[in-house]
Design a protein around this nucleic acid. Structure first.
Lengths: 217, 217, 217, 217
DNA sequence: AATGAATGAGCCTTCATTCAT
DNA sequence: TATGAATGAAGGCTCATTCAT
């Protein structure tokens, strides 16, 4: 029942069409939100028929999933992480490839800056993702699939400094830092228009460095 | 035109009815989100007619506003803050009334614990509030009206320790801590079911205390 | 079934209440039309409860009927016609009581002027009456009950000049004149704001006088 | 936002569907009036889904506008006037194309007859138009757009007889005649079922001819 | 008598999705 | 493959009317 055939476009023209749909969707969902961006409107904006839409995507949520995947692909790439187990990405180098040359502070600073950079790409749409994730576990799971990788990467980076850390509960610490950086960057970018970005990076770095590397009674 | 008269229930039965609407709304909005909880469904759940609903509220958003106000009223009260400028609240004592006896660490710990406690009340609905705030500035403003008080209180608490702080940019620091605590508590409660609450409180306290009171090169 | 008891107010206070309802209804129906003037709004404007409303009137249409009756009572009185077979009206004198002294032209002129005068009372509400009469036979009948008297009066006035008339089909002629005067006055008052009233009276008089008293091949 | 795409049907089946909607609307609005004919009911009567309705019309008023335009198009065509600047209408001949051969009386007679003929088409719906025009200026304007043409045509016809007219105030005179003919025809057709149509045409002709062409003290 | 809280049928409209062409 | 006309469930909201107090 309802096993609609979903096509995977192979030809150049079809791939272009799918991309046009995605561009239109990001544009409209950024502007008016997921729910208010109707599928009919998206296809019209994309210059594609609604029928074509439903031959590429099972439903609207299916499109959303792909958009989230795309975003995380772009955002995580500079951290040398990517969702798609691609082939041509083997020689891509991220900022954390060789931490050896960097001081502790520089590493943390770099990380925060990278998260900021990630938020600069399709900022409005990422805000929408955050909203939907909050709204229902279904959407949250879609996002979490991709976010998990970030967590793993961060933990491995942190363990590189294992000996110097003045932290007992490493797991909670990394969870905390991740959450904290994400929230601060998110809030700065989405709700403050990035105005105090510099100050936030500075203070955030200070907070995390002190937390991680300074002993406390 | 369109100046619909909004009734303020005075009799016991009416007040109960309004409360039933609010309870039903919180329940359904928590379960399925603001948009998916239809006004008809809410009134059915509340055992009240749709007409009654619209005699108490201008529209669905009006109900939401009241729910947010109620939540913040409950949540902020233990911090000796409340939205309603009541009269019988004069002798209510919040945890921050006399900080004199508390150590720095105890104060921070207490603050975090209070925020946690606040998130334990109608957790799912608070998650929905967070979601809507993210979704549109209109909803965000509704929340911000109430959140502002929290910010103000926190800043005043912090300035009590002014002399001991090892912080230059006080404004960014308090913004950061607020955002950070909120996010960590929020995430712990909403997305991890509060399982690692104790560890989070401990680490969060450590992080903030170190940040605030330990000098850094 | 549904034989709701309709009260006829006898006490001064009750009569006043009913009048307040009627005043409010005329005001609101004039402003926003019959359908948009809700019964709840009318009673609020009147400072009376909706329950009281429904103890005086079977339903909204019942109120409307009374308003139409009232209007025609006022409008037709100067023509020495009134709907209510009252008692204290016996010595009221209308403009057509003694036509003997008036010339043909003066009589016609007077008639037109009287119709105009009638339209100056609660003009907006009379326009609403006209609209509803057009809309459904049910409303039309309400109006016609009262308009019939006007027709009868006019025919009798005309027959006073019987010998001088150069008209064969007296019935059609009086129907035509009535309709014509009504329409011209109506349009002038309702849609032209009465600006060209003087000119319309003059030309209308000319048209009717020529029609009635000038022989035509 | 809200720029709903209105479809213009091109295929035969779609055009038929739109026509079915219009037919159903005229039928129901004639029977129960504009306000009581709900859009859902109209589409049910038309055997079309409500969605289809709203793909052809912005809202109910938009449908009404088109119905009025259609009516006036049909009604004015025999007078060689039509709203649509069509192409295949170039050789359509109206009754007033060559007045040269007609006597004054014949011209007036012809005009009145034509107005009557116009009222025979969808009489009940034209009555509804009249009602709504009376009800609100918004609807009145919709009608006036089309009625203006009639006025212009009539004035030009009248000025052809300029030299013979025994009228000083030509503007008021033409306003009066237009209003008068309209009202008489309207009333005869809508409220008397057209029974006395012949007599009305005769007397109306007499009245107007006398008014226009017979000198008066 | 009077009140006004409560009712609920019904209105207009949107939009994800299907399916005949 | 691609199209887009068509669908209809469902949503927010109004208002004439009832009835317990």
């Amino acid at each position: 029942m309802g096993d609609k055939e979903i096509r995977v476009p192979k030809q150049k023209r079809s791939i272009e069409k799918k991309q046009r749909i995605k561009d239109a969707a990001i544009k409209l969902m950024s502007e008016k939100g997921y729910h208010s961006a109707s599928s009919n409107e998206i296809t019209k904006e994309a210059g594609v028929s609604i029928g074509t839409f439903y031959s590429y995507y099972k439903d609207k949520k299916d499109l959303y999933k792909e958009l989230v995947a795309d975003i995380y692909n772009v955002v995580l790439t500079p951290m040398n992480l990517s969702t798609e187990s691609g082939s041509e990405k083997d020689n891509v180098t991220g900022p954390f490839d060789s931490l050896d040359n960097l001081s502790i502070e520089e590493t943390v600073y770099l990380y925060i800056e990278t998260v900021f950079k990630g938020h600069e790409y399709e900022t409005a749409f990422q805000r929408e993702i955050a909203s939907l994730s909050e709204q229902s576990d279904e959407f949250r799971e879609i996002e979490m699939v991709h976010k998990k990788e970030l967590t793993e990467m961060f933990t491995s980076v942190l363990s590189a400094y294992k000996d110097e850390l003045k932290i007992k509960d490493l797991k909670t610490a990394s969870y905390l830092i991740l959450t904290t950086v994400e929230a601060a960057v998110h809030d700065t970018m989405f709700h403050n228009g990035g105005k105090n970005k510099k100050a936030v990076i500075r203070e955030l770095t200070a907070m995390i460095v002190k937390y991680l590397f300074i002993p406390y009674p």
